[in-house]
């Protein structure tokens, strides 16, 4: 119960804090609108018959991934720069419970992307917002956020080893947009790409949201996969965080950038 309260309070605090950041405003609202505009023009001018709602949802998910990637990937580095890392680790609560609200908040901020791309599409490109399964659509969003938030935990834990976490985030933005089928179906890629997509939460998130919105597919299965992956990521993230925390304490390298 105390752990849940800590996660909830931390999540609310970090959502508010990230909402005030110009960088996250850019990543989670402006950048997705610019990419969505590009995608609208490309799909409209191209010869493929594809609904613009498909494009709006994919572009929104791109924004969720970007905010998770940059926010979670740099979570520990930012705490270091702000001088709050030692305090957070010294707190009685396990460090992983301090980190989870941050990574969940970075994924939650991505909801601005989805909202922005849908509104933008509706206002300027006449994208209809007719949902096939409204209830499943509503369920698919938190499932996607949890999946990406927990993937963020693994990123936060992994990037701690890498001094230039920001550079790693720069590298991983486009490839994950590609291999998770956010705008381009996986059938266009070589066969070896598909197994990679299975272990990435955005793949199931976009399937859940898109299938619920447009119909077809298996939105329930995708929601369950998203939540299942979240549990796996949580396990991996907890082990990694515990290991790195112990190592940093032993070597007294917590505050070293």
């Amino acid at each position: 119960m105390r752990a849940l309260r800590l996660i909830l309070t931390g999540w609310r605090f970090h959502v508010k804090s990230l909402t005030l950041s110009a960088f996250f405003l850019l990543t989670s609202a402006i950048q997705p609108i610019l990419f969505a505009t590009m995608a609208y023009f490309m799909f409209r001018a191209g010869s493929t018959e594809q609904s613009l709602l498909y494009v709006a949802l994919g572009s929104g998910l791109m924004g969720i991934w970007s905010s998770t990637l940059f926010g979670s990937g740099g979570a520990i580095s930012w705490q270091r720069w702000q001088g709050t890392l030692e305090v957070s680790i010294a707190a009685p609560a396990p460090f992983v419970l301090v980190l989870i609200p941050i990574t969940l908040a970075t994924a939650t901020i991505g909801l601005y992307s989805l909202t922005a791309t849908l509104l933008w599409g509706k206002l300027f490109f006449g994208v209809p917002f007719d949902l096939e399964h409204p209830l499943l659509f509503l369920l698919s969003i938190p499932a996607t956020i949890v999946g990406l938030g927990m993937l963020g935990l693994v990123l936060a834990a992994s990037f701690v080893l890498y001094r230039n976490a920001n550079a790693m985030s720069n590298l991983l933005e486009f490839p994950v947009w590609l291999v998770t089928g956010l705008l381009v179906p996986l059938s266009l890629f070589p066969g070896w790409v598909e197994p990679i997509s299975w272990v990435l939460a955005p793949t199931w998130g976009v399937r859940a949201i898109r299938d619920a919105a447009l119909g077809g597919g298996d939105p329930v299965g995708a929601i369950l996969m998203s939540l299942g992956l979240a549990v796996v990521y949580l396990g991996i993230g907890t082990v990694l965080i515990g290991y790195f925390e112990r190592l940093a304490r032993e070597r007294a390298t917590l505050s070293l950038t």
Partner: peptide
Amino acid sequence: PTMLGAPLFQILFFAYIGRYTG
């Protein structure tokens, strides 16, 4: 990662959208 890796995937990303949209 920044000056070579990201550009590589940027090109692939847009080229594949181009292929898909025709």
